[in-house]
Simulated scan of single mutants.
Amino acid sequence: MMRMAMAGIMLIMMFSCKDGDGKDLPEGIMGQEEIVPIIYDLMLADEYHNEILVKDSSLPAGGRLKKYEQVFLLHKTNYEAFSTSYKYYLSRPDLLKPVFDSVESYAGKVRARIYNSAKKTAP
């Protein structure tokens, strides 16, 4: 009887554990490889808005939302799809941390690519 109980508990534990690699995401939720570049580009759009548009009164107001829309168009998605996925990740800290770690890594790769291309074109 005790062995049956232990076997039952082991089976429950085995099937309840997920590997956390994001492959078991619900339908309609973007995977990490899809959401990371979008978050990075949205962060760039925020920086552009805060550093350029806010300081230059000759530019039209409402630039942040326009930049967000451009980011969504660039990545062939929309606000609703991104928002649903982002809220899902916010509710799952175990998946959110790797996403933001990947955003940081992605940013480093972009900076390195820009630096290397500038180095090649320098006289």
Rank of each mutant, 00 (worst) to 15 (best):
Y115K: 05
L74D: 03
Q32R: 15
F82C: 04
Y115M: 13
L74P: 03
K87A: 06
N50Y: 09
R113K: 14
S105Y: 08
D94V: 06
F72E: 02
S85V: 14
A107E: 07
Y115N: 03
F72T: 02
F72C: 02
K67P: 03
Q32Y: 12
T84R: 15
V110H: 06
G31D: 15
P93A: 10
I52A: 09
R92C: 13
G28I: 15
R111E: 14
G108C: 05
P37A: 15
E34Y: 12
Y86Q: 10
M30N: 04
Y115S: 04
L65Y: 01
R111G: 02
E33T: 14
E69M: 01
Q70T: 02
K87P: 03
E27C: 12
S102G: 07
S58M: 09
F100K: 14
L53G: 02
A112E: 09
E51W: 08
Y88K: 09
I35T: 05
K67F: 10
R92N: 06
V71R: 03
V110N: 05
Y106A: 10
N78W: 08
S58N: 05
S117Y: 10
L59A: 09
P37D: 15
A81L: 13
V110G: 00
I114M: 06
V36M: 11
V103Q: 14
P60E: 14
F72Y: 13
S91Q: 09
E69T: 01
I29M: 11
P93H: 07
Q70K: 08
T84Y: 13
S105V: 11
R92I: 08
F72V: 02
L65C: 01
S83H: 09
S85K: 12
L73W: 04
I35C: 11
K97W: 13
K87Q: 07
E47T: 10
E69N: 00
H49I: 04
T84N: 11
S83W: 14
Y106M: 14
V99E: 03
S117F: 15
S105D: 06
P93S: 13
V110M: 11
E34W: 13
G63Y: 00
K97Q: 10
N50P: 02
H75V: 05
A112Y: 09
I38Q: 03
K66C: 01
F82H: 01
G28C: 11
S117W: 12
L73P: 02
K87F: 09
